[in-house]
C-alpha cells in the first residue's frame, strides 16, 4: 500500500448525494481478475452517453478540463451499496488519493483505507464551503494533523481517523502484514475456544 501524509491539490466536485458503488464502477466491469485498469471506467455511466467513449457528457465534472487533482469531493453517504472493492480501486487508479464527503458508507470506508485512499469526513457546512469554491482552489489534506484546509480562504476543519488506521496509512502498512505477525495469538485463540 502506498503511504499518504499530505496531499495538496485541486479537487473534482461531484455534488450528488448517495453515490452508490454501482455508479462508481458498474457491475459489468467487475469481471477482471486483477486490480488494475479500473480508472478508465470510474463513473462510467455518468461519464459517457450510452456507454460511448466518443460521446462524453459535457456536464459531468470528470469530463470538464477545469477540474483536476488528487482529491474527489462528493455529497453525503458516499460509497453506499455493494461491497465491491473495485470502487476503491477505480478511484485510486483514476488518480485520486483522498475522497471528501460529509458521510461515508462503512464498507467503502474500509475498502478505501485498505488501498491507501483516505476518506475525509467533514461537516455538511464545510462540504458546502468546498463546493462553493472555484476550480482553481486547492485543498490541503494533512493526515498527521488530521485537518483539511481550503487554501484560498484558509478555512479548515479537522477530521477523525482511528490511530491504528492513521499509522498504517502514514507508513503504508496494511492489515494483512499485521495479522500475519500475530498468527501465534490467533492459533492460541483457536485452541482455547475449543
Amino acid at each position: 500500500m502506498k503511504a499518504l501524509t499530505t496531499i495538496q491539490s485541486r479537487f473534482v466536485p461531484i455534488n450528488i448525494e448517495n453515490i452508490d458503488t454501482d455508479q462508481i464502477i458498474p457491475a459489468r466491469f467487475l469481471k477482471a481478475t486483477t486490480k488494475d485498469g479500473f480508472g478508465k471506467n470510474l463513473f462510467r455511466d455518468w461519464r459517457y452517453e450510452k456507454d460511448d467513449e466518443t460521446n462524453p457528457h459535457a456536464d459531468f465534472p470528470l469530463n470538464q478540463s477545469q477540474y483536476s487533482g488528487e482529491i474527489l469531493v462528493a455529497g453525503k453517504n458516499f460509497g453506499c451499496g455493494s461491497s465491491r472493492e473495485h470502487a476503491a480501486w477505480s478511484i485510486l487508479d483514476y488518480g485520486f488519493r483522498v475522497v471528501v464527503s460529509s458521510f461515508f458508507a462503512d464498507i467503502f470506508k474500509n475498502n478505501a483505507l485498505n488501498n491507501g485512499v483516505l476518506p475525509v469526513q467533514v461537516s455538511e457546512a464545510f462540504l458546502e464551503k468546498i463546493f462553493a469554491q472555484g476550480p482553481a482552489t486547492e485543498l490541503l489534506v494533512d493526515l498527521e494533523k488530521q485537518s483539511v484546509t481550503i487554501l484560498t480562504t484558509g478555512e479548515n476543519e479537522s477530521f477523525d481517523i482511528n490511530s491504528y488506521k492513521k499509522t498504517c496509512l502514514l507508513n503504508g502498512y496494511d492489515d494483512i502484514d499485521y495479522l500475519l505477525s500475530i498468527k501465534p495469538a490467533i492459533e492460541l485463540f483457536e485452541t482455547e475456544r475449543r
Binding site: 461491497s83 465491491r84 472493492e85 473495485h86 464498507i107 474500509n110 475498502n111 485498505n114 496494511d174 495479522l179
Partner: peptide
C-alpha cells in the same frame, strides 16, 4: 457482514 477483497485476503 460483507467485506472487500483486501479483507477477503486477510
Amino acid at each position: 457482514f460483507g467485506i472487500g477483497t483486501s479483507e477477503v485476503e486477510m
